Simulated scan of single mutants.
Amino acid sequence: MGITMNEIADMCGVSRGTVDRVLNKRGGVKSDTAQRILAAAESLGYTRKTLAASMPVSASVQYRIGLLINATGHPYFTDIMAGMLTALENLLSQNITGIVKMSHGFDVEQQLRQLDEMLQQNVDAVALTPANDPRIADKLREFTSRNIPVVIVSALLDNFDYFSFIGCNHYLSGRIAAGLVKQILSPGSKIAIMTSTRKMAGVSRRVTGFTDVLQAAKQNYQILPPVECFDDDAIAYKTVSSLSQKNHDIDLFFFAAGGYSGAYQALEDTGLLGKCKIIAFDTSEPNVFHLTHGNVAALLNQHPTEQGRQAIQQIADYLLKRSVPSSKETYMPVEILVDESFTNTV
C-alpha cells in the first residue's frame, strides 16, 4: 500500500489539508512548511506527477540515508524528523536523499522489520531513535559490519558502538531539573515522577540524575516511585489520576517524558492542577500552554529539531567528505524556560 497524505501530515505536524495544498500546488502554505512537506513526501516514496514536478531535478542519486523515527505523532519526535527533513532538503543537489520509516511507541518488532527493509534497500547510512533492546543493537551491528555508519539520535542504545550520538546529556538534564526543584520546594515536600518507558535508557538516566541530587540533599524530600506513561496520553491520564487520588498532598510533579496532555487533564480532574508545582521537558503545545498559564514552573528544552538537523549533516559530511565528528557524542545544551521566555516584548 502506498504512503498516504495523512501519514505525511503526521510526520510534518500539519493537517492533511495543508499537505493536499502543497502536493497539488494550491498555494497558501509558508515556503519552509511546503518544502518540508515535499521532502517528506519524496522520502516516503509518495508518487504523484505534481510532486515530481515540484522537486528539484538532480543527477542520479548516489547516497541514501535511512531514517527511523519512533512514536509517530509525538511532538518531540516530530520535531526531530522536521530537523532531519530540513537538512535533507539542503542536500538534494548533492545527490543525497532519505528513506523514511516510522514506528510507534518503541515497538521492537516493528523496528527490526524496518531495519531489515533498509538493509534490503542498500542504504548508505542510518539515523534513528532506537528502542533500547539487545535485538536492535544486534541488528544494527549488521549495518556496521557492512561499513554503514549508524547515528543514534536522542534515544540511547546500550552496548552498541555507534558512529555518533546526538542528543541530550540525559543524566545531567535530570540533575538540572533537580536543581530547580531545590530552589522552589521546601524541606519534606512530596515529589511525583512521570516517565515514559524502561525501553528508553536516556529517560531512565534522567530520572536517576534527578533522584541522585534530591536524595543527596538535606531537605528530606519524599520521592514517590516513578510511573510510566509510554508517551501515551490515555495511559498518562490513568496513571497520574491514580497517583493523584492516592496522594492529594503531592507538592511537585516532574514530567520526564511525554503523555503531557493526559497528565494535565488528570491533574485538573483531581484538583491538583495549579496547586502543585510542575517541571517538564520539551516545548510541546500543552507544556507551553500550561507554562504561560501559571501551572508549570519551568520547562527544559532539548532542541530536538537541531538534533535531527545535525544527525543528517554529520552523515552527509561523512558520505561526501569522509569527515568524522571530532567527538562521538554531541550533546545539546539544556535550556531552562520560564513564563517570560514566551513573552513578546518590544
Rank of each mutant, 00 (worst) to 15 (best):
T270N: 05
K275T: 13
A280H: 09
I250G: 02
E268K: 15
S284Y: 09
S284W: 12
D249R: 12
S261P: 00
P286S: 11
G262I: 03
I250V: 13
F281E: 10
G262M: 02
G274S: 08
T270R: 01
G274F: 01
D251C: 07
G271H: 09
D269I: 01
A257I: 13
T283R: 15
G271T: 11
G258R: 12
L267A: 11
Y264T: 03
A280D: 11
L252A: 11
K275I: 08
I279Q: 05
D282R: 10
G258I: 11
K275C: 05
D269V: 01
F253C: 02
S284H: 14
F254S: 07
F253V: 04
F255V: 07
G271P: 07
D282T: 14
E268P: 00
G262K: 07
F281R: 10
K277C: 03
F281S: 09
E268I: 03
A263V: 04
A266N: 07
A266P: 03
A256R: 10
S261V: 08
E285A: 15
C276Q: 10
G271Y: 06
Q265P: 00
G262W: 00
I250E: 01
E285C: 11
G262D: 06
F254C: 11
L273A: 04
F255T: 00
A256L: 13
L252W: 08
D269F: 01
G274M: 07
G274I: 05
A266R: 01
Y264C: 03
D269L: 00
F254D: 06
T283F: 10
L272I: 01
I279V: 14
D249L: 11
A280L: 08
A256P: 08
E268L: 13
Y260L: 07
I279K: 09
A257S: 15
A280Q: 10
F281K: 12
Y260T: 12
S284G: 15
F253E: 02
S261C: 09
G271R: 10
G262P: 06
D251G: 06
K277S: 12
A257G: 14
I250D: 03
P286M: 09
F253S: 01
F254Q: 10
E285Q: 15
E268D: 08
C276D: 05
Q265V: 03
L252S: 12
C276N: 08
A256Y: 07
G274V: 08
D269R: 04
G274Q: 04
E268C: 02
A256W: 09
L272Y: 00
T283H: 12
G271K: 11
F281H: 14
F254E: 05
L273Q: 06
K275Q: 12
E285H: 14
Q265C: 02
F281I: 14
L267N: 03
G274W: 00
Y264K: 07
F255N: 05
G259Q: 08
A280W: 05
Y264E: 05
I279R: 07
D282Y: 12
G258E: 12
K275M: 05
Y260S: 13
A257Q: 15
G259D: 06
A257K: 14
T283Q: 15
T270E: 03
F254H: 09
Q265E: 11
C276G: 03
C276A: 14
L252E: 08
E285R: 15
G259R: 04
G271W: 07
Q265W: 00
D269T: 06
